[in-house]
């Protein structure tokens, strides 16, 4: 397993030397409970490729795949579980077919290029050419989890306390600051 990928994805090995046999931990020290380390690493990398840190937070910052891990335990039905399995399996198979490499062993620029191609094909009109199963479903889950996180919603106000329907942007931002908890 590529330790650099794991670090990029906000994951650290919990112990040295026995990599894949041990549970992975996030930077917050929380272990994945549903996904085995290899799956967690792939999903974390994909999430970070889809939503990288830019001037705003990325999927690694919002621990999107760790949250997905919890959803798999408490929310997901059999269909979603199978879809994610299918996604990982077919991603690996496609990487092997195209690049003769496991996904995680590919260089970062190649992984990005690979995902861009998969993304374009998955949203093309000709769905017969979709190379990786359930990509759209996994993408939807990653985006949903990320964009419903606290870090991705910096001006959310739980208790506005008032409504006003015609303010300038400066006044709006001041009201957010005043009322944010």
């Amino acid at each position: 397993m590529n330790a650099g990928v794991l670090a990029t994805a906000g994951i650290v090995l919990s112990a040295c030397g026995r990599g894949e046999d041990l549970p992975l931990e996030t930077t917050l020290g929380t272990s994945f409970e549903y996904f085995p380390p290899h799956q967690a690493a792939i999903l974390s990398d994909v999430a970070d490729m889809l939503i990288p840190q830019t001037e705003t937070v990325g999927a690694a910052d919002t621990e999107t795949i760790l949250y997905l891990d919890q959803l798999m335990l408490k929310w997901a039905g059999e269909r979603t579980k199978l879809e994610i399995e299918d996604f990982i399996d077919s991603l690996e198979a496609e990487a092997l077919a195209r690049y003769q490499s496991n996904y995680l062993n590919m260089p970062e620029d190649k992984r990005k290029e690979f995902l861009q191609e998969i993304d374009a094909a998955s949203f093309s009109e000709n769905l017969d050419t979709v190379p990786v199963k359930s990509y759209r479903r996994v993408k939807w889950l990653i985006f949903h989890i990320h964009y419903t996180s606290e870090a991705a919603n910096p001006d959310f106000v739980l208790i506005p306390g008032q409504y006003t329907g015609n303010v300038s942007e400066a006044d709006y931002l001041a009201l957010v600051d005043e009322n944010r908890y």
Binding site: M49, L50, I51, P52, T54, T56, K112, L115, Q116, D119, A120, S122, F123, R136, K139, W140, L141, I142, F143, H144, Y147
Partner: peptide, 17 residues
Amino acid sequence: THSGTRAGIGAEAKSGV
């Protein structure tokens, strides 16, 4: 926002969100 239901990944997908 971006619900992941349209094409695009990476910084390009985030731009405008």
